[in-house]
């Protein structure tokens, strides 16, 4: 069959439209996430990135069109670090095994769960901090705890919302390498990001959206001045550095923004 030629679609959106309170957030989007994909969804704030992600996960219903998920597909979701309540009383271990709630009801951690959690913690280099409160971790560790929680219930598709927003350069590299390793091990990944150069340009496939899909393909084909202007509504330049596109904001845009700031203050 053609299964070898085109990998199986895990999630397929057909002419998907999503709306909040009557205003359209995602408009007529058709795209597929296939087994082995590593996709970055990019676009400006309010472009519907997170909405599209939530529609893929099935946590918001489509206004029209539909989302088809492979029967029995296990998905795991890693929320934005900013959305986590860091004062909540849980340790790293308790956080990681939280997704076990689908396994049963017995409150105590079973031996199987503990063993599996230890493997995941070991894989992500978190064994030493397993008993710490989640607030007492470094930025990279905090991000990894939530990836560990997602991996704990053995997903086929990992979905991350802005995995590198608000983190420093070192943490960004750490997260990117970790995701690349997981992808090499066979995990399919979809993420959203603001970070064109630090993250999107490194991925095999990038989807630019601004409510509608503007472009979908390899970064070299997608991160072009024409596509970026359509996506962001601002002029951008693209250089090729080491075979990879590097996106620069155009100077005029910068100056204009500074001057408008000056007149307000």
């Amino acid at each position: 069959m053609n299964a070898l030629a085109v990998p199986q679609a895990l999630v397929e959106c057909h002419e998907l439209t999503c709306a909040y309170d009557g205003s359209v957030a995602v408009d007529d989007v058709s795209m597929a996430v296939r087994r082995g994909d590593f996709v970055g969804i990019v676009g400006p704030s309010g472009s519907g990135k997170t909405t599209l992600l939530k529609a893929v996960l099935g946590s918001i219903p489509p206004a029209s069109g539909h989302v088809h998920r492979l029967q029995g597909l296990t998905m795991a979701y890693v929320p934005q670090v900013e959305s986590v309540d860091w004062n909540f009383p849980v340790t790293v271990l308790e956080t990681v095994i939280m997704t076990r709630s689908r396994n049963g009801w017995w409150p105590r951690t079973t031996k199987d769960e503990r063993d599996h959690a230890e493997r995941v913690l070991h894989r992500l280099g978190l064994v030493d901090v397993a008993e710490r409160h989640i607030r007492e971790l470094s930025g990279g560790q905090q991000q990894r705890v939530f990836i560990a929680r997602a991996l704990f219930h053995r997903p086929e598709l990992l979905v991350l919302d802005e995995p590198t927003s608000g983190v420093d350069v070192r943490t960004r590299h750490e997260v990117l390498h970790l995701l690349a390793d997981l992808h090499d091990e066979g995990l399919s990944i979809v993420l959203t990001t603001h970070d064109l150069n630090g993250l999107a340009a490194h991925l095999p496939r990038v989807v630019c959206i601004n409510k509608r899909i503007i472009a979908d393909g390899a970064p070299r084909d997608v991160l072009t001045p024409v596509v970026l202007e359509k996506t962001y509504g601002a002029e951008m330049e693209v250089l090729i550095h080491g075979g990879m596109p590097v996106v620069l904001e155009s100077g005029a845009d910068h100056v204009a923004r500074r001057l408008s700031n000056l007149t307000t203050f």
């Binding site: 946590s59 795991a76 979701y77 929320p79 309540d85 909540f88 997704t99 689908r102 219930h153």
Partner: peptide, 9 residues
């Protein structure tokens, strides 16, 4: 702790 992710899970 995390209603959004719980829902998805």
């Amino acid at each position: 702790f995390d209603p959004d992710v719980a829902q998805v899970t």
